[in-house]
């Protein structure tokens, strides 16, 4: 057991400041354990979100020594022996209180995405998909919605363009639908014009941050960008479609409805 110093941001939407706490730390503890000990013994009303404490629910997202992290997966022995540990809420979202922030914007983005639209079942009443065809989709579906990728995304965090880009989390969700062997919907015009695939400039910060090690940029966002390019900017593909008499959607549903 040793005593460690924590600086925890305390406050609400009106403002706040860092408070210092000294806490006893036992072998094997993670940051969330220490925060709980501080909460139980020194600051009963310290606001923290958490659930599973095993990196599976994505609730305890916060910035630990400046790095967006899950508190339940950040082991205390990763810090130097005298290092002060600074903990603050995610920067990209409005703070509610202490370490909790209002992540409702993310839920709104999710709702904007059109639901899964399954192809009809085969004659035997089954949907057949092969493992090699679902491996990639399963990678995306590992997402625990911790929103750390949203927090580090430059478009969301620094440029504040929540109006133009749904963020890496929902690009991955779109990729999981787009590459789903059974999904029968065409989502390319929306991916370009409504969800903002062009906003991402591939700095890969989201991929570096993902606690589930999802290859967000290379496997998710870049293939979506490529599909957009194929649809809108590839002259050969356009010519081929013209000769074959094949039409593809280039307008979003909203555009189609408004004529």
């Amino acid at each position: 057991m040793s005593t460690r110093t924590f600086k925890i941001w305390r406050g609400d939407s009106a403002g706040g400041e860092f408070h210092q706490y000294d806490a006893e730390v036992d072998e094997g503890m993670v940051v969330l354990d220490v925060l709980h000990r501080i909460q139980a013994l020194q600051a009963n009303d310290l606001a923290i979100r958490w659930n599973c404490k095993a990196g599976k629910c994505g609730s305890c997202s916060m910035e630990i020594n400046g790095r967006p992290s899950l508190a339940c997966m950040t082991r205390m022995n990763t810090f130097g022996p005298d290092e002060v540990i600074t903990v603050q809420p995610l920067k990209a979202f409005p703070v509610i209180k202490d370490l909790t922030c209002d992540v409702s914007w993310n839920y709104e983005q999710n709702k904007r995405i059109a639901p899964f639209k399954p192809k009809p079942r085969g004659r035997d009443g089954e949907h057949r998909m092969y493992q090699q065809d679902v491996d990639r989709v399963q990678e995306f579906r590992k997402c625990i919605e911790c929103f750390l990728c949203q927090d580090v995304c430059h478009v969301v965090r620094d440029r504040g363009r929540k109006d133009a880009f749904v963020g890496p989390r929902f690009m991955v969700r779109l990729a999981s639908l787009e590459m789903h062997p059974l999904d029968d919907d065409d989502r390319i015009p929306e991916i370009k014009k409504e969800y903002g695939s062009g906003m991402c400039n591939i700095t890969k910060c989201c991929t570096d941050t993902c606690p589930e090690h999802i290859n967000i940029t290379d496997n998710g966002i870049i293939p979506l960008k490529e599909r957009v390019v194929d649809r809108y900017y590839d002259p050969l593909a356009r010519l081929a479609r013209l000769f074959a008499g094949r039409r593809v959607r280039t307008k979003t549903r909203t555009e189609e409805q408004s004529g």
Partner: peptide, 17 residues
């Protein structure tokens, strides 16, 4: 659930494992 988008692991002949 499969109808609603769930992606279960598959058997070699493409069914839910």
């Amino acid at each position: 659930l499969e109808e609603w988008g769930a992606v279960f692991d598959r058997t070699p002949d493409g069914l839910i494992n």
